[in-house]
Each structure stands twice: as structure tokens, then as C-alpha cells.
Design a protein around this nucleic acid. Sequence first.
DNA 1: GCCAACGTTGGC
DNA 2: GCCAACGTTGGC
Length: 159
Amino acid sequence: MRYWLFKSEPDVFSFDHLKARPKKTEPWNGVRNYQVRNFMRDDMKPGDLGFFYHSSCPEPGIPGVVEIVSEAKPDPTAFDKKSDYYDPKSDPDNPRWLLVDVAWKVDFKQFVSLAELREQEKLAEMLILRRGNRLSVTPVEKAHFNLICKLGGIDPKKL
DNA sequence: GCCAACGTTGGC
DNA sequence: GCCAACGTTGGC
């Protein structure tokens, strides 16, 4: 079991949007970064848990937990000329870009803001807090995952 | 709106 | 394969 963090701009797609989806699930399309593609392809497994992170907004932070509910599979938006994510270089016979399905798992009792994360000495090494980190999906250490769940007011053992 | 950081692109 | 230029990200 691994742990992850998914960034999204809440104006575009928020945690509440995810919760409102059929089956509370959304294909995490639009990843166009090789490192993140490789995380999805090589390391993510159904049943893995992650945080949903709101970025580029008045209060960046984590509203709750998601679960990976599919294997990596081709991202159809790469072949859709009308999509913002269209990539003419992706060959349908050998898809360059992948996605996984992500499902809402639980709301935090308290939103955990970026400022609050930064106050935690134990999280200093967390990728999301390191300057210049630009990956839209990052791995999260188990100890960090457990600590952040507690900040959010939920018991990680019950997930 | 600013700007640091970093990934990608493309000429050579 | 190098690397400068460019575009994007994301906090502030």
C-alpha cells in the first residue's frame, strides 16, 4: 500500500466536485508529465490512498482523502482534438499518457491548510512543501500520511 | 501581478 | 547530447 497526493485547482475540479460525481469517482486525466505518468504506471495500485490537495486558490490545503480505484490505463483526452490535453504525438497503438480512477474516500473533519502543514517540523521533507516542486501527483510517506490524517481529525487506522 | 523554480523544446 | 529560451506552476 502506497500513499499519494493529488493536486487540483478547486476552481477547475474540487474535492466537492469529486464527491458529487457518479460513484464519487473521476478519471484523473490530463497528466502530461513523465514522472507522474510513471508513478501511475509503475507504483500505483487499486486500494492505495491519497490526499486531495487544493492549489492555486485563496486557501491551499487538504480537504480529505481519496482512494485509487483502477489500474493505470490510457488517457483518452490525449486523442481528443477538442481537449485541452490533446497530444498529437501520442500514438493510439502505444498510448503515451495514462490515468487512474480516483474516488472520494472521506472528508477531513477539519481542513488542513498549507500553512498548517508548514508548521509541522515532521513534514519538512514532504515533497509538496519543498520549494520548486511542481509535480501534480507526488508520493507521500506513510508516517506523513498518518500525521496529516490526524491533523484532519480522522483516524488513519479506520480507512 | 510577481517571480522563483523547473520541465520541455528545439537548434546546433 | 548540450543548453538557452520559453512556458507553466503555484505561493504570496
